[in-house]
Amino acid sequence: MSTPHFLLDGLPVPFEEGQTILEAARAAGRYIPHLCWHPEFAPHGSCKLCVVKAAGRYVSSCAMPARAGWEVESDTPALNTRRRTLLQMLFVEGNHFCPACEKSGDCQLQALAYDLEMTTPRFTHFFPDRPVDASHPDVLLDFNRCIYCELCVRASRETDGKAVFALSQRGIHKKLVVNAESGRLADTDFAATDHAAHICPVGVILHKRVGFRTPIGARTYDAAPIRVVAMRTEADDD
């Protein structure tokens, strides 16, 4: 019996039963953009950057199990326009001032915006007021850049066994909170060695005193675009 496969932008992608579209695509060396998906964790499906059109329906490819014979569109001008709009929403929702951000060049949101050639935030900015939390001796939290991927929430809960982070409020007022009555990171059991301290795809969780150790210009996405780096990470690091 031959392995089942589906067509991704016209080319066959084999998959195993239970594999999602995104997972199968990656295994076959094909990149589908994503921000909240991470190989170590169950699909989350919140950022919607991985949206594809499968058998005529728009679905989150990170969460949708692959089906034999499906025709899946991903790298098309129409879908990339949708993705660009989603990025623009993330940019206007928070305060993303790249020139002052230590994560610049290593940031997945920024890298994806480069890759999808987002040149304008397009919408009217919300300019929310989100004070930073610098209380912890080793790590700074700059909530201005949070995209609510919940990777820190999941890493702290599932890998570190700590539950340092959670989300509160809802809608456009949704916010990241830490596990302390004071609301300060210093009053939690968070440590710079936690997995959660190394998983933020954007510039919320920043390690102090190392900000510009790697100079701008020599950073992750300076050398290669995210569609290349993202595929490499899985093969090399895991």
């Binding site: 919140s46 929403m89 995209i147 609510y148 809802r170 809608g171 456009i172 949704k174």
Partner: peptide, 21 residues
Amino acid sequence: FAHESCGFCTPCRVGTALLRN
């Protein structure tokens, strides 16, 4: 809808607020 969006996914969280604005 903007008031009731749970805020989980990007399009609804931000999109309903943009539509309202």
